[in-house]
Design a protein around this nucleic acid. Structure first.
Length: 243
DNA sequence: GTCCAGAGCT
DNA sequence: AGCTCAGGAC
């Protein structure tokens, strides 16, 4: 194993093995309370994950809190797509307010119809990792990045018990992709599938273990412009392949 | 102007 | 595989 993969796996393992501690998703204390309370507000975490695309992560993690300010769960299940759309537009919750309001609405309906209004039933039966990822994929607006991200956070931070971890892949998002390119794991025009299989190759029993360290490297230091290599934990071993 | 934890449709 | 959705922080 290369020194870089060794460091990334070790960092991932460290977080995975530590006991639960309150997760700080962003700087909104009330949103964080909601997201950490999987027992009483499991839908908040689920809905926030679905909102997590093409905007700053910190902003996406507040969206369920912002909606529930106007209408508490489970009453939100009675709201129409149009009602929810009005909230998204008036509070400017997302870039894609029409589309995200629809996915938010559809997710609430699905939680109601398929999980008896209790989103924790998505993950609380100690599922196989494949089952968990597939359940997230069933939601409209959820693809491989969001399904694996949700599963990774449940496994690594929120300590949700599951039967195995082998099918929780790395979340192939913009940061992971950039970091994988610059450390030389993949080439410039690699596809999402190549990223996923690259992580499987490194740590097949839990490919997603690489997700958090890679995401943090990309978010904090390995920026698109002016990467702060001297502060990065991979500095000594990284080939620093910049396009 | 650049960048942001993408997915769906063609 | 490429295009579209289209907003706010910096």
């Amino acid at each position: 194993m290369s020194k870089i993969t060794e460091i990334l796996v070790k960092e991932g393992d460290k977080v995975f093995n530590e006991p639960y501690k309150f997760v700080k998703f962003n700087n909104n204390p009330k949103a964080n309370e909601l997201l950490n309370d999987l027992k009483n507000h499991p839908h908040a975490f689920t809905l926030a994950c679905i909102m997590d695309r093409q905007i700053k992560a910190e902003r996406a993690w507040s969206i369920p809190y912002e909606v529930f300010e106007d209408c508490e769960f489970p009453n939100v299940a009675k709201m129409s797509h149009e009602d929810i759309s009005k909230i998204f537009h008036s509070k400017k919750l997302h870039r894609f307010n029409d589309e995200m309001a629809l996915y938010f609405y559809l997710a609430v309906q699905k939680i109601n119809d398929d999980y008896d209004g209790d989103a924790s039933k998505i993950w609380n039966d100690e599922p196989k990792s494949a089952t968990l990822v597939r359940r997230f994929l069933e939601f409209k607006g959820v693809g491989i990045k969001i399904a694996t991200m949700a599963s990774n956070i449940l496994a690594r931070k929120l300590k949700v018990p599951m039967a195995d971890y082998c099918c929780i892949d790395i979340s192939p998002d913009v940061h992971v992709k950039r970091v994988f390119r610059r450390v030389g794991f993949i080439n410039e025009n690699a596809t999402v599938n190549e990223i996923i299989y690259c992580a499987k190759e490194i740590n097949p029993e839990y490919p997603g273990i690489l997700d958090l360290p890679c995401w943090e490297v990309g978010n904090k230091w390995c920026r698109p412009k002016n990467p702060k290599c001297n502060e990065c934990l991979l500095d000594k071993y990284c080939p620093k392949i910049i396009d």
